[in-house]
Design a protein around this nucleic acid. Structure first.
Length: 222
DNA sequence: GTCCAGGGCCTAC
DNA sequence: GTAGGCCATGGA
């Protein structure tokens, strides 16, 4: 399964349909990182309100977030759901950033990629998808982000296994595609757009552009 | 009222 | 190592 052509064809079909997505929304790298934690199993609309709440309270810097009262953070991000654990995770994350890198993201992202990935993964509440979103969208590292939509869509396309592990899926995409940060950024964004619009937990609906993409690309669908 | 969202942790087996 | 429960708000 090393033929990358289908993956590129699918990307260009999505690009044609949706246009460049311009991901990730966020004014600063730190805001992107915070958003990556807040959006865990949560719609972006609710995350936007939470980010606005943090911004309003001056909590969108590592230093201010690390030293903020937990209750203040909880109130700011309530709209994002799971707000107690997310508040704790945000604070722990900011604290770690201050302790280890003095809050300097340039220092953080200067760490060799695989070491950095392991280090972030060891933090509480930061799983593989969140780490890779941070690395790709805040750190501009060539890392492909796998999410529930990616898993669902590419399984339905017959290109991956239903029970494939995160690392297996990531290896598949990274080995098939050129390691281009902008491509990785927009591809993931396109997948999410497709997923949100057509491929929620239900079976593929009529009108899903995947059908046309498959037909034109000679890809079999389950 | 029910389902789901741009996941991840903890516990049991 | 993995299946299942839990976290919680807000929109469809």
């Amino acid at each position: 399964m090393r033929d990358g052509e289908p993956l590129l064809r699918i990307y260009y079909a999505l690009l044609k349909k949706f246009g460049h997505r311009g991901w990730w929304p966020g004014e600063t790298r730190f805001e992107v990182m915070v958003g990556a934690i807040l959006t865990q199993n949560t719609s972006w609309r609710n995350v936007e309100k939470a980010i606005a709440g943090l911004k309003q309270r001056g909590l969108l810097t590592p230093r201010s977030l690390a030293t903020a009262d937990l209750g203040l953070i909880e109130n700011a991000i309530r709209s994002s759901g799971f707000y107690k654990q997310k508040a704790e995770r945000l604070k722990l994350f900011a604290h770690w950033l201050m302790d280890k890198y003095d809050g300097e993201l340039d220092l953080l992202f200067a760490v060799p990629l695989q070491n950095l990935r392991k280090e972030l993964l060891s933090l509480k509440g930061i799983g593989p998808e969140t780490v890779d979103s941070i690395l790709l969208y805040a750190g501009n590292k060539p890392v492909f982000v796998i999410d529930a939509y990616t898993r669902r869509i590419f399984w339905r396309l017959g290109l991956t296994k239903e029970d494939a592990k995160y690392d297996e899926l990531q290896e598949f995409f990274e080995s098939c595609l050129p390691h281009d940060v902008e491509l990785f950024k927009d591809y993931h964004a396109q997948i999410v757009e497709l997923g949100k619009t057509y491929c929620r937990k239900k079976p593929l609906c009529a009108g899903c552009p995947l059908r046309a993409i498959c037909k034109n690309s000679g890809i079999g669908m389950s």
